[in-house]
Design a protein around this nucleic acid. Structure first.
Length: 317
DNA sequence: TGCAGTGTTGCTTC
DNA sequence: CGAAGCAACACTGC
Protein backbone atom coordinates (compact mmCIF):
# COMPACT_ATOMS: atom_id res chain seq x y z
CA UNK A 1 0.00 0.00 0.00
CA UNK A 2 1.73 2.96 1.23
CA UNK A 3 4.52 4.68 -0.55
CA UNK A 4 5.98 8.02 0.48
CA UNK A 5 2.87 10.19 -0.07
CA UNK A 6 0.57 7.80 1.76
CA UNK A 7 2.91 7.46 4.74
CA UNK A 8 3.41 11.23 4.81
CA UNK A 9 -0.37 11.71 4.87
CA UNK A 10 -0.78 9.28 7.75
CA UNK A 11 1.93 10.77 9.92
CA UNK A 12 0.69 14.33 9.33
CA UNK A 13 -2.82 13.29 10.37
CA UNK A 14 -1.64 11.39 13.41
CA UNK A 15 0.75 14.10 14.53
CA UNK A 16 -2.15 16.45 15.26
CA UNK A 17 -3.91 13.82 17.32
CA UNK A 18 -1.35 11.81 19.25
CA UNK A 19 1.61 14.05 20.11
CA UNK A 20 1.66 14.64 23.90
CA UNK A 21 -0.70 11.72 24.48
CA UNK A 22 0.30 9.00 26.88
CA UNK A 23 0.00 5.31 25.99
CA UNK A 24 -2.15 3.58 28.56
CA UNK A 25 -2.33 0.14 26.99
CA UNK A 26 -1.40 -2.10 24.07
CA UNK A 27 -3.33 -4.90 22.43
CA UNK A 28 -2.44 -7.22 19.54
CA UNK A 29 -3.60 -10.54 18.14
CA UNK A 30 -0.80 -11.18 15.64
CA UNK A 31 2.47 -11.42 17.57
CA UNK A 32 4.40 -12.26 14.40
CA UNK A 33 4.15 -8.60 13.39
CA UNK A 34 6.28 -7.61 16.38
CA UNK A 35 9.93 -8.22 15.58
CA UNK A 36 11.42 -6.44 18.60
CA UNK A 37 11.29 -6.85 21.56
CA UNK A 38 9.69 -10.19 22.38
CA UNK A 39 5.99 -9.61 21.75
CA UNK A 40 5.10 -10.54 25.33
CA UNK A 41 7.43 -7.83 26.64
CA UNK A 42 6.10 -5.03 24.48
CA UNK A 43 3.08 -4.31 26.64
CA UNK A 44 4.92 -3.39 29.82
CA UNK A 45 7.78 -1.69 28.01
CA UNK A 46 5.55 0.72 26.15
CA UNK A 47 2.89 1.39 28.76
CA UNK A 48 2.92 4.84 30.40
CA UNK A 49 5.29 6.32 27.80
CA UNK A 50 4.41 9.69 26.32
CA UNK A 51 4.43 10.34 22.58
CA UNK A 52 6.63 13.34 21.81
CA UNK A 53 6.84 13.18 18.01
CA UNK A 54 5.97 11.15 14.93
CA UNK A 55 8.08 11.20 11.78
CA UNK A 56 8.45 9.45 8.45
CA UNK A 57 11.71 7.94 7.21
CA UNK A 58 11.17 6.41 3.80
CA UNK A 59 8.08 4.27 4.21
CA UNK A 60 8.73 3.77 7.93
CA UNK A 61 6.64 5.46 10.62
CA UNK A 62 8.70 6.47 13.64
CA UNK A 63 6.93 7.33 16.87
CA UNK A 64 9.22 8.93 19.46
CA UNK A 65 8.42 8.25 23.10
CA UNK A 66 9.72 9.23 26.53
CA UNK A 67 9.09 8.10 30.06
CA UNK A 68 7.65 11.23 31.72
CA UNK A 69 8.66 10.00 35.15
CA UNK A 70 12.29 9.49 34.24
CA UNK A 71 14.73 12.32 35.03
CA UNK A 72 16.98 11.52 32.10
CA UNK A 73 15.80 12.04 28.55
CA UNK A 74 15.73 8.44 27.46
CA UNK A 75 14.00 8.42 24.10
CA UNK A 76 12.40 5.33 22.64
CA UNK A 77 11.19 4.64 19.12
CA UNK A 78 8.22 2.61 17.97
CA UNK A 79 8.83 1.82 14.29
CA UNK A 80 5.96 0.66 12.11
CA UNK A 81 6.33 -0.38 8.48
CA UNK A 82 2.96 -0.94 6.85
CA UNK A 83 4.26 -3.04 3.95
CA UNK A 84 1.52 -4.05 1.47
CA UNK A 85 -1.87 -3.76 3.12
CA UNK A 86 -1.12 -2.21 6.48
CA UNK A 87 -2.45 1.14 7.54
CA UNK A 88 -2.66 3.06 10.76
CA UNK A 89 -6.03 4.45 11.78
CA UNK A 90 -7.08 6.80 14.53
CA UNK A 91 -10.38 5.70 16.04
CA UNK A 92 -12.10 3.66 18.68
CA UNK A 93 -12.64 -0.04 18.39
CA UNK A 94 -14.81 -2.31 20.41
CA UNK A 95 -14.80 -6.08 20.16
CA UNK A 96 -17.72 -8.21 19.14
CA UNK A 97 -18.68 -11.32 20.98
CA UNK A 98 -15.92 -13.89 21.34
CA UNK A 99 -17.37 -16.07 18.63
CA UNK A 100 -17.52 -13.40 15.94
CA UNK A 101 -14.40 -11.42 16.93
CA UNK A 102 -15.43 -8.44 14.85
CA UNK A 103 -13.69 -5.18 15.45
CA UNK A 104 -15.72 -2.07 15.03
CA UNK A 105 -14.59 1.46 14.39
CA UNK A 106 -17.06 3.36 16.48
CA UNK A 107 -16.72 6.88 15.26
CA UNK A 108 -15.52 8.65 12.19
CA UNK A 109 -13.72 11.83 13.13
CA UNK A 110 -14.24 14.02 10.17
CA UNK A 111 -17.90 14.90 10.45
CA UNK A 112 -18.19 14.02 14.11
CA UNK A 113 -21.12 11.86 13.15
CA UNK A 114 -21.32 8.41 14.61
CA UNK A 115 -20.34 5.84 12.07
CA UNK A 116 -19.95 2.21 12.88
CA UNK A 117 -17.84 0.21 10.54
CA UNK A 118 -16.62 -3.30 10.99
CA UNK A 119 -12.91 -3.82 10.61
CA UNK A 120 -11.75 -7.41 10.88
CA UNK A 121 -8.14 -6.58 10.15
CA UNK A 122 -7.08 -4.52 13.15
CA UNK A 123 -4.22 -6.52 14.65
CA UNK A 124 -2.52 -3.99 16.91
CA UNK A 125 -3.97 -1.19 19.06
CA UNK A 126 -2.30 1.54 21.13
CA UNK A 127 -4.69 2.90 23.75
CA UNK A 128 -4.21 6.61 24.44
CA UNK A 129 -5.00 8.61 27.57
CA UNK A 130 -7.74 10.59 25.80
CA UNK A 131 -9.87 7.50 25.19
CA UNK A 132 -8.89 7.23 21.51
CA UNK A 133 -6.78 4.56 19.90
CA UNK A 134 -4.26 4.08 17.11
CA UNK A 135 -4.95 0.82 15.32
CA UNK A 136 -2.95 -1.03 12.71
CA UNK A 137 -5.21 -2.63 10.13
CA UNK A 138 -3.42 -5.18 7.99
CA UNK A 139 -5.22 -7.73 5.87
CA UNK A 140 -2.14 -9.68 4.88
CA UNK A 141 -0.20 -9.27 8.15
CA UNK A 142 3.05 -8.32 6.44
CA UNK A 143 3.52 -5.20 8.56
CA UNK A 144 6.55 -4.86 10.81
CA UNK A 145 6.64 -3.39 14.31
CA UNK A 146 9.87 -2.66 16.19
CA UNK A 147 10.32 -1.00 19.57
CA UNK A 148 13.50 -0.06 21.41
CA UNK A 149 15.83 2.73 22.48
CA UNK A 150 16.32 5.60 20.04
CA UNK A 151 19.95 4.74 19.25
CA UNK A 152 19.21 1.06 19.01
CA UNK A 153 16.41 1.49 16.48
CA UNK A 154 18.23 4.16 14.48
CA UNK A 155 21.21 1.87 14.09
CA UNK A 156 19.25 -1.09 12.76
CA UNK A 157 19.78 -1.85 9.06
CA UNK A 158 16.05 -1.22 8.61
CA UNK A 159 16.83 2.51 8.98
CA UNK A 160 20.58 2.78 8.63
CA UNK A 161 20.87 1.43 5.10
CA UNK A 162 18.14 3.65 3.66
CA UNK A 163 18.91 6.00 0.81
CA UNK A 164 18.17 9.75 0.76
CA UNK A 165 14.73 11.32 0.99
CA UNK A 166 13.63 12.37 -2.50
CA UNK A 167 11.67 15.39 -1.25
CA UNK A 168 14.45 16.83 0.91
CA UNK A 169 15.35 20.33 -0.22
CA UNK A 170 19.01 19.34 -0.03
CA UNK A 171 18.53 16.42 -2.45
CA UNK A 172 19.57 18.29 -5.58
CA UNK A 173 19.58 17.02 -9.13
CA UNK A 174 23.39 16.60 -9.07
CA UNK A 175 23.12 14.22 -6.13
CA UNK A 176 20.37 12.27 -7.88
CA UNK A 177 22.42 11.92 -11.07
CA UNK A 178 25.48 10.91 -9.10
CA UNK A 179 23.52 8.26 -7.25
CA UNK A 180 21.51 6.72 -10.07
CA UNK A 181 24.19 6.80 -12.77
CA UNK A 182 26.30 4.36 -10.73
CA UNK A 183 23.61 1.66 -10.64
CA UNK A 184 23.58 -1.21 -13.07
CA UNK A 185 20.02 -2.40 -12.61
CA UNK A 186 16.88 -1.54 -14.54
CA UNK A 187 15.76 1.98 -13.73
CA UNK A 188 12.38 0.96 -12.33
CA UNK A 189 13.99 -1.42 -9.87
CA UNK A 190 16.67 1.12 -8.95
CA UNK A 191 13.99 3.72 -8.16
CA UNK A 192 12.16 1.20 -5.97
CA UNK A 193 15.34 0.15 -4.11
CA UNK A 194 15.00 1.72 -0.65
CA UNK A 195 18.74 1.53 -0.12
CA UNK A 196 19.26 3.76 -3.16
CA UNK A 197 16.44 6.25 -2.63
CA UNK A 198 13.49 5.92 -0.26
CA UNK A 199 9.74 6.16 -0.57
CA UNK A 200 9.10 5.07 -4.16
CA UNK A 201 7.21 1.83 -4.83
CA UNK A 202 5.38 0.22 -7.71
CA UNK A 203 2.75 2.92 -8.26
CA UNK A 204 4.98 5.98 -8.23
CA UNK A 205 7.86 4.39 -10.14
CA UNK A 206 5.43 3.64 -12.98
CA UNK A 207 4.03 7.16 -12.85
CA UNK A 208 7.44 8.85 -12.66
CA UNK A 209 8.83 6.90 -15.61
CA UNK A 210 5.74 7.56 -17.72
CA UNK A 211 5.97 11.27 -17.06
CA UNK A 212 9.73 11.28 -17.79
CA UNK A 213 9.15 9.14 -20.91
CA UNK A 214 11.68 6.53 -19.83
CA UNK A 215 11.27 2.80 -20.47
CA UNK A 216 11.30 0.92 -17.12
CA UNK A 217 13.86 -1.59 -18.42
CA UNK A 218 16.51 0.98 -19.29
CA UNK A 219 19.72 0.39 -17.39
CA UNK A 220 20.32 3.15 -14.87
CA UNK A 221 24.01 3.71 -15.61
CA UNK A 222 23.33 4.00 -19.32
CA UNK A 223 20.83 6.83 -18.96
CA UNK A 224 21.81 10.18 -20.42
CA UNK A 225 22.08 13.24 -18.19
CA UNK A 226 19.01 14.68 -19.88
CA UNK A 227 17.01 11.54 -19.09
CA UNK A 228 18.13 11.53 -15.46
CA UNK A 229 17.13 15.18 -15.14
CA UNK A 230 13.70 14.32 -16.51
CA UNK A 231 13.28 11.49 -14.02
CA UNK A 232 14.40 13.76 -11.19
CA UNK A 233 11.89 16.48 -11.97
CA UNK A 234 9.06 13.99 -12.58
CA UNK A 235 9.88 12.39 -9.23
CA UNK A 236 9.80 15.68 -7.33
CA UNK A 237 6.66 16.88 -9.08
CA UNK A 238 4.66 13.66 -8.75
CA UNK A 239 5.58 12.96 -5.14
CA UNK A 240 4.82 16.55 -4.09
CA UNK A 241 1.49 16.53 -5.86
CA UNK A 242 0.57 13.15 -4.39
CA UNK A 243 1.37 14.40 -0.88
CA UNK A 244 -0.83 17.42 -1.53
CA UNK A 245 -3.68 15.17 -2.67
CA UNK A 246 -3.24 12.91 0.37
CA UNK A 247 -1.90 9.90 -1.48
CA UNK A 248 -3.31 7.35 -3.87
CA UNK A 249 -6.19 5.05 -3.01
CA UNK A 250 -6.20 1.91 -5.05
CA UNK A 251 -7.92 -1.00 -3.40
CA UNK A 252 -7.98 -0.10 0.26
CA UNK A 253 -5.53 2.69 1.09
CA UNK A 254 -7.05 5.09 3.59
CA UNK A 255 -5.69 8.00 5.56
CA UNK A 256 -5.58 7.90 9.36
CA UNK A 257 -9.29 8.74 9.50
CA UNK A 258 -10.37 6.13 6.98
CA UNK A 259 -10.75 8.48 4.01
CA UNK A 260 -9.46 7.84 0.47
CA UNK A 261 -6.54 9.66 -1.10
CA UNK A 262 -7.01 11.98 -4.08
CA UNK A 263 -4.12 11.01 -6.32
CA UNK A 264 -5.83 7.91 -7.76
CA UNK A 265 -7.58 9.99 -10.44
CA UNK A 266 -4.22 11.43 -11.49
CA UNK A 267 -2.69 8.06 -12.31
CA UNK A 268 -1.54 7.76 -15.92
CA UNK A 269 -0.34 4.18 -16.21
CA UNK A 270 -0.83 2.41 -12.89
CA UNK A 271 -4.24 0.67 -12.78
CA UNK A 272 -6.88 2.48 -10.81
CA UNK A 273 -10.33 2.35 -12.40
CA UNK A 274 -12.95 -0.20 -11.49
CA UNK A 275 -12.39 -1.81 -14.84
CA UNK A 276 -8.61 -1.95 -14.66
CA UNK A 277 -8.34 -2.55 -10.99
CA UNK A 278 -9.47 -5.17 -8.52
CA UNK A 279 -7.55 -6.93 -5.83
CA UNK A 280 -7.02 -9.91 -8.06
CA UNK A 281 -6.04 -10.11 -11.72
CA UNK A 282 -5.92 -6.59 -12.90
CA UNK A 283 -3.87 -4.51 -15.20
CA UNK A 284 -3.77 -1.21 -16.94
CA UNK A 285 -2.98 -3.13 -20.09
CA UNK A 286 -5.75 -2.46 -22.55
CA UNK A 287 -6.12 1.18 -21.58
CA UNK A 288 -4.74 4.02 -23.64
CA UNK A 289 -1.81 6.36 -23.07
CA UNK A 290 -3.20 9.80 -22.28
CA UNK A 291 -0.39 11.42 -24.28
CA UNK A 292 -0.42 9.45 -27.50
CA UNK A 293 -3.30 6.96 -27.41
CA UNK A 294 -1.14 3.87 -27.62
CA UNK A 295 -2.29 0.85 -25.62
CA UNK A 296 -0.54 0.68 -22.25
CA UNK A 297 1.63 -2.39 -21.76
CA UNK A 298 2.19 -4.44 -18.70
CA UNK A 299 5.35 -6.49 -18.24
CA UNK A 300 6.94 -8.42 -15.39
CA UNK A 301 10.04 -6.99 -13.81
CA UNK A 302 11.56 -8.61 -10.75
CA UNK A 303 8.26 -10.23 -9.87
CA UNK A 304 6.28 -6.99 -10.07
CA UNK A 305 4.19 -5.53 -12.86
CA UNK A 306 5.47 -2.49 -14.69
CA UNK A 307 2.98 -0.42 -16.68
CA UNK A 308 4.16 1.86 -19.44
CA UNK A 309 3.45 3.31 -22.85
CA UNK A 310 5.50 1.43 -25.48
CA UNK A 311 5.42 4.45 -27.80
CA UNK A 312 6.32 7.26 -25.37
CA UNK A 313 8.72 5.17 -23.33
CA UNK A 314 11.04 3.51 -25.81
CA UNK A 315 13.82 1.10 -24.95
CA UNK A 316 15.81 1.94 -28.04
CA UNK A 317 15.87 5.41 -29.63
C1' DT B 1 -12.56 -24.33 -8.81
C1' DG B 2 -7.77 -23.01 -9.04
C1' DC B 3 -4.65 -19.84 -10.02
C1' DA B 4 -2.66 -15.44 -10.98
C1' DG B 5 -2.24 -11.26 -9.13
C1' DT B 6 -2.05 -7.46 -5.37
C1' DG B 7 0.75 -1.29 -2.36
C1' DT B 8 6.73 -4.59 0.35
C1' DT B 9 10.68 -6.59 1.77
C1' DG B 10 14.21 -9.99 2.70
C1' DC B 11 15.93 -14.48 2.30
C1' DT B 12 17.27 -18.39 -0.71
C1' DT B 13 18.70 -20.26 -5.07
C1' DC B 14 21.06 -20.54 -9.27
C1' DC C 1 28.64 -11.51 -7.80
C1' DG C 2 23.69 -10.30 -9.50
C1' DA C 3 19.21 -11.51 -10.86
C1' DA C 4 15.30 -14.23 -10.19
C1' DG C 5 12.27 -16.86 -7.27
C1' DC C 6 9.77 -17.37 -3.35
C1' DA C 7 7.92 -16.68 1.24
C1' DA C 8 5.36 -14.15 4.73
C1' DC C 9 -0.58 -13.77 4.30
C1' DA C 10 -5.55 -13.01 2.79
C1' DC C 11 -8.51 -12.33 -0.62
C1' DT C 12 -10.73 -11.85 -5.37
C1' DG C 13 -11.73 -11.88 -10.30
C1' DC C 14 -11.57 -14.65 -14.24
Amino acid sequence: MPELPEVETIINDLKKKIVNRKIVGVWFDAPSLIKKPQPKDLRFKIKDLRIIDIKRRGKNILTYLINPKSKILNQKILLIHQKMTGHLLYGKWSFGKAQDKQKIIVKSLTKGALEEKVNNYIHFILYLDNGWQVGLSDLRKFAKILFGGKEEIENLPDLKNLGPEPLNESFKVEKFINLISKKRGKIKQVLMDQNVIVGIGNIYSDEILWQAKIHPFKIAEKLKIKELKNIYSAMKQILKKAVKLRGTSVSDFRDAFGKSGGYAKMLKVYPHTKRSYGVGGYQREGEFCQRCGTIIKRVKIGGRSAHFCPACQRLKP
